[in-house]
Amino acid sequence: MLAGAGAILALVLGLIALAFTRTGPGTERVWIAGMGLAFPLTVLAALLAYGLFVGERLLPRQGADVVSVQAEGRQWAWSFAYDDAPGVVTEDVLHIPAGRPVDVAITTVDVIHSFWVPRLAGKLDAIPGHVNVLRIEADQPGRYRGASAEFSGEGYADHEFEVIAHDAAGWDQFLRGGTR
């Protein structure tokens, strides 16, 4: 996307620079129909198709090995609960298995927050009275930083959390009450 944008920018600025050195075709057909209409339509159609295709892949799909967790935001912390471990609630740390798709059901008890783990997925808002589901997946076990990405008052800057992705053994251990 960046390369394409750079090319278009160079083209436009180049055309402007050339205008100072020569008088060229000043016809509406070239500039409006060609450059103004046909050119952006082509580029945008391609980009839109690409965006929708990628977006489609990011959508939650049903599957056998999907893990479901709940994320509940508040000023200024997150609580996480697990379908596979009823009763377990972790504060500001979300445990997930690596290599498996995880559906995070996101909501809030006070103001609007946004659940965002940049390296795992895009962000999705936590809105009072609504539950939004975000599909995340960590390819490798490890620790990932997460943050709330909607301004929520004074404690907003520190409204962060951590995602720990376990390997299969670690995940089993977590579910049985090992690492908390």
Partner: peptide, 18 residues
């Protein structure tokens, strides 16, 4: 972006014309 593009290129065309 299309109508914006039309305007930008009309302006560049004006520069070429003048």
């Amino acid at each position: 972006a299309v109508p914006t593009g039309v305007q930008v290129f009309a302006w560049i065309g004006t520069m070429w014309k003048g």
